[in-house]
Design a binder for these strands. Structure first.
Length: 965
RNA sequence: GCGAAGGUGGCGGAAUUGGCAGACGCGCUAGCCUUAGGAGCUAGUGCCUUCGGGCGUGCGGGUUCGAGUCCCGCCCUUCGCACCA
């Protein structure tokens, strides 16, 4: 090997300084968006300018830079822009904390983050930089608002908001932590305020249906969106109060209507007032007050007991005229469906729990799908020959504590009833539950099929058994019997029973049949309900885009005319915790319509509005006349590849999809989905150390010791997402100083699959550094042995080692290309490059073919360049190239190099690997020849000795397998 | 409870279509080299072994010549939603 000592060391600091600004100066990442051919729009979710990016943030941008570089070398015109999600609460709160203006805070952070990108070698088209807090941007956010407004998609209505009485302000949902105001800990109150909404519910169906067209989105994100939209199919059925007021309810189970034994309204339902009787008034008022106060905190606790109060009022079930009690309970939400439900306790788990607790009747109206019927016969309730009779009838049973557990076949229920009745002792009864419901008394077997049977059975049982004299329903009696626990309740779609003329309707038809009938009767109709609510975009905070609406006493709500946009954020000094309403003079204006005195809307928009359209703005970021140009966005959008964190899987992505659909319908864009391909990268975690006394400690303080350096107490150690508060962030500046940006980039791509959460390893990164040193020495140490650029390889003249390297090189090109472009599998791409280097090092140290070495080294540098652009650009120049790497074509591979001359084929005998035979490629192709070769192998012959071959399988190029006896 | 992802050596992970489990890297072991650094180089490294082999991808079954991969039934971890009628 060439004498190492003479070789220049890998001086990453000097190399990175040399090339840091090169790519930007040459404009490789600038693109003209009027271009129409070979374009590629790569987009990272833009960050909130927090001012500091750790190595975990780096993952996102390094992936983007890598893909962009590959696509550029592929000859595509790549748009990879960057901007700042600069408005919003985090910036405002941080600014308040630092006693500065959010503007100053944000600008300083942006400068710092740009410097970090530069250090990483991460390149963007900075000519298209977008910052949502600049008037040049939010002027168009306001335009977007007005477009939606003019098309009926933005409206104002009273809505319950969270209001903190201590801070005297409205709180955004994000400001409520564990049910209390994040600043002062006071539980917020519900307050009715006028709020702006976007009518996203108009698009619920399309947002759901179009998810099917997003084939390149991660499955979990699609599912999360589906769940969030929450489409339910069922019926709306109109119950009535005794006073004649309609109470519409939504149900997904119209087939269970005959089992509705009571109703429950949300505590704040408007009909509660009228339904409440004088006796119940105090209880109802108290409950409503409690519900209003406690919802937020209480909803946090997972499994809470059902609570509720009877109003004293009754309603009429339209299907059978039954008079049923109306209750209020906080498990019914005013914000879903109609805020009222019909309760079918036999087939809805929540209703079941509620009914049992409050003693309301529970009537099964759907047969169990599994047909199970059970009967528990308590010891002493039957005569001695009972068991023999069961055996004769072929009815299986089991003796358990205190009695017999009988599993009655569904078709033997009547026979069982007879047997039970014959052997019943005086004063006893036997019940049959599950797919049939019967109570067998000495003088009668009563089918439990409705309210009349309910009261008769209840009365009889209470008389017969003093212990249950206080039972309030039949189901309550049954619930005392443990063996019945799993058969009393079910939510199956089974055959309808106890439902008048619908009894016997099979489960598969029941829903549709009842819905049709309800429509004929005029008491209900098929209905679809969504969990998705309209998007509340009003914020009563300063740091956001002002809503461009003027309120005039004479003319009403007037949109700010286009030539008066933007409505600028008023300049103030240190703003503290306030909204636009607190800024003197802001609201005062004149009506654009009548010229009279008027008042500006003082709400600002949710930051999710800013980020719901920024990907359009990049296309024409400097256009002062338009938000974007239709012809351009229609070409560039949908974004070819969108990358960001899963934390935005629901809100941001849903809002962006909604805005694009709305803009499409209005006619501003020609496409209906913003992001063709989505990739969600995982978080980077790092060891964090917690001392019960001194809190979170940095790894430096701990130095690997298991105890706190200050108090000696044992430390809790576990891996968390990097965060300042847990003191476990890894600072890229330190990494870059120690190893260089290339090493950080390489390790970030190598440490694991990019979609998975992963631990940053302080040892692991050294492997990547070592590898780059190896590459450096390989290239710099053999420059004098490289043939001239472009020299042709004389393939037949290569020795065996050379042919091996040649094949390895081409296989590597194929694998790296596919791993990056098709699979986003950067870790395995790096592993393949490492394997290539592992082959090249000994080859280069021997008697390498200069032309082959040239091809392999050039190719290695190009393959590695998207990962480690600094060192690769340096090596590229040192090996004699004058043009930059980004002007080179991405390496291609030679198909013929992928074919092996000899192949190693595993041979199995009875499923166990017994030998490997090395055969020529043409033999490996031919099953018969392959079998012959396998049979000829010594170890196989040994294994086959004295055995008969039952079956022989040869899969070309894969495997030979013998089955022997 | 519902939905999603995952469980493979001491560790991060690989195995893309049912075909050689553990690529690549970290760590570790031994040796070499050295101007003694946490550098570099070489070899080894799933477990057990009587050195023939046996066992091995969360657990239990199944399909198959062949299963980390497919099917059935469980267990565990992480994430998202959660009284949504």
């Amino acid at each position: 090997m060439t004498n190492k000592e003479r070789l220049e060391a890998y001086d990453f600091a000097a190399i990175e300084a040399r090339w840091r600004d090169f790519w930007a100066e040459r404009g490789f990442f600038r693109v003209d968006t009027t271009t129409r051919e070979n374009t590629f729009y790569y987009l990272n979710m833009f960050p909130y300018p927090s001012g500091y990016l750790h190595v975990g943030h780096g993952r996102n941008y390094i992936i983007g830079d890598l893909v962009a570089r590959v696509k550029i070398m592929r000859g595509l015109k790549v748009l990879n822009p960057m901007g700042w999600d600069a408005f919003g609460l985090p910036a405002e709160n941080a600014a308040i904390e630092n006693e500065t203006h959010p503007w100053t805070y944000t600008q300083g952070n942006i400068a710092q983050m740009k410097e970090q990108f530069r250090a990483w070698g991460v390149q963007f088209d900075w000519d298209r930089e977008v910052s949502t807090c600049l008037p040049g941007y939010y002027r168009w956010t306001q335009w977007l608002f007005l477009e939606l407004y003019k098309h009926g998609l933005a409206y104002k209505k009273k809505a319950a908001v969270n209001y903190c009485p201590t801070c005297d302000t409205v709180l955004a949902n994000e400001q409520i932590v564990a049910g209390a105001c994040e600043r002062c800990g006071t539980p917020p109150e519900k307050k009715e305020l006028e709020q702006w909404f976007f009518k996203i519910t108009n698009y619920a169906d399309r947002l759901l249906d179009d998810l099917d067209t997003l084939e390149d989105w991660p499955e979990n994100v699609v599912k999360m969106q589906e769940n969030w939209i929450g489409r339910s199919e069922g019926a709306e059925v109109v119950f009535t109060t005794e006073g004649g007021d309609p109470i519409p309810v939504f149900t997904t189970r119209p087939d269970t209507l005959w089992g509705a034994t009571f109703m429950v309204l949300a505590p704040e339902h408007p009909l509660v007032e009228g339904l409440t009787t004088d006796e119940q008034r105090d209880a109802v008022v108290a409950y409503r007050k409690q519900a209003e106060r406690e919802t937020e905190i209480d909803r946090m606790s997972a499994e809470r007991e059902k609570t509720g109060v009877f109003t004293g009022g009754y309603a009429i079930n339209p299907v059978n005229g039954a008079r049923i009690p109306v209750w209020i309970a906080d498990y019914v939400l005013m914000t879903y469906g109609t805020g009222a439900i019909m309760a079918v306790p036999a087939h809805d788990e929540r209703d079941f729990e509620f009914a049992l607790k409050f003693g309301l009747p529970i009537l099964p109206v759907i047969e169990r799908a599994d047909g199970r019927v059970k009967s528990f016969v308590m010891a002493g309730t039957v005569g001695g020959e009972f068991e023999a009779a069961l055996r004769d009838a072929g009815i299986p049973f089991e003796s358990i504590d205190a009695g017999l557990d009988v599993a009655v076949p569904l078709d033997a229920v009547d026979r069982y009833t007879e047997i039970a009745q014959t052997h019943l002792q005086p004063g006893a009864w036997i019940d049959v539950v599950g797919a049939r419901w019967l109570f067998v008394f000495q003088d009668a077997a009563i089918e439990w099929d409705g309210m009349e049977a309910e009261s008769e059975i209840l009365n009889r049982c209470r008389l017969l058994e003093p212990k249950i004299a206080s039972a309030r329903s039949v189901m309550e009696i049954l619930s005392y019997c443990p063996p019945y626990r799993d058969v009393l309740f079910h939510a199956d779609y089974g055959t309808m029973i106890h439902s008048a003329e619908f009894s016997g309707t099979p489960g598969s038809e029941a829903k549709a049949a009842v819905t049709r009938w309800l429509e004929e009767q005029g008491t209900g109709k098929g209905a679809i309900n969504f969990r998705l609510h309209d998007w509340l975009i009003s914020r009563q905070r300063y740091w956001g885009a002002p809503i461009p609406i003027i309120h005039c006493e004479a003319c009403g709500e007037i949109p700010v005319p286009d030539d008066q946009l933007p409505v600028l954020l008023p300049e103030t000094e240190f703003i503290g915790k306030m909204g636009l309403a607190d800024i003197p003079g802001f609201a005062k204006t004149t009506c654009p319509s009548c010229g009279g005195p008027a008042r500006r809307d003082t709400d600002t928009m949710d930051t999710f509005v800013d980020s719901a359209w920024y990907f359009l703005r990049y296309i024409n970021a400097q256009d002062d006349e338009h938000a974007f140009v239709k012809a351009d966005v229609d070409h560039w959008l949908p974004v070819d590849q969108y990358v960001g964190g899963v934390e935005h899987a629901i809100l941001h992505l849903l809002y962006a999809r909604f805005v694009v659909k709305a803009l499409h319908d209005i006619g501003h864009v020609g496409f209906t989905e913003p992001f063709a391909r989505l990739f969600t990268q995982g978080m980077v975690c790092h060891e964090a150390y917690n001392c019960p006394e001194h809190g979170w400690l940095t790894p430096d303080e701990v130095k690997g010791a298991p105890a706190c350096p200050r108090c000696g107490k044992p430390l809790e150690t576990s891996s968390f997402k990097m965060s300042k508060s847990k003191r476990n962030v890894v600072d890229p500046t330190e990494i870059i100083e120690t190893y260089g940006a290339d090493t950080e980039r390489l390790y970030t791509m190598f440490m694991g699959p990019p979609d998975r959460d992963i631990d940053w390893s302080d040892e692991g990164i050294r492997g990547s550094f070592r590898f780059l040193n190896r590459v450096w020495l390989l290239v710099v140490g053999h420059i004098d042995r490289l043939a001239e650029i472009g020299a042709a390889i004389d393939l037949p003249a290569l020795d065996e080692a050379g042919r091996g390297v040649w094949r390895r090189y081409h296989r590597t090109v194929k694998k790296v290309t596919e791993d990056i472009e098709d699979r986003f599998s950067f870790n395995t791409a790096v592993a393949a490059i490492m394997e290539l280097v592992n082959d090249l090092v000994p080859y280069a140290a021997g008697e390498p073919d200069p032309a082959l070495l040239r091809e392999a080294i050039d190719g290695l540098i190009l393959l590695l360049s998207p990962f480690t652009p600094f060192v690769c650009e340096e090596l590229w120049r040192r090996t004699g190239h004058e043009d930059p790497i980004l002007e080179q074509a991405w390496p291609s591979y030679d198909e013929s190099a992928l074919e092996q001359e000899t192949v190693e084929i595993p041979v199995q005998v009875n499923g166990k690997l017994r030998a490997r035979v090395t055969v020529a490629a043409d033999i490996a192709e031919d099953p018969d020849a392959l079998k012959e070769a396998a049979l000829a192998h010594e170890r196989i012959q040994l294994n086959l000795e004295g055995k008969e071959i039952v079956k022989a399988i040869a899969i070309p190029n894969k495997m030979v397998s013998f089955v022997v006896k």
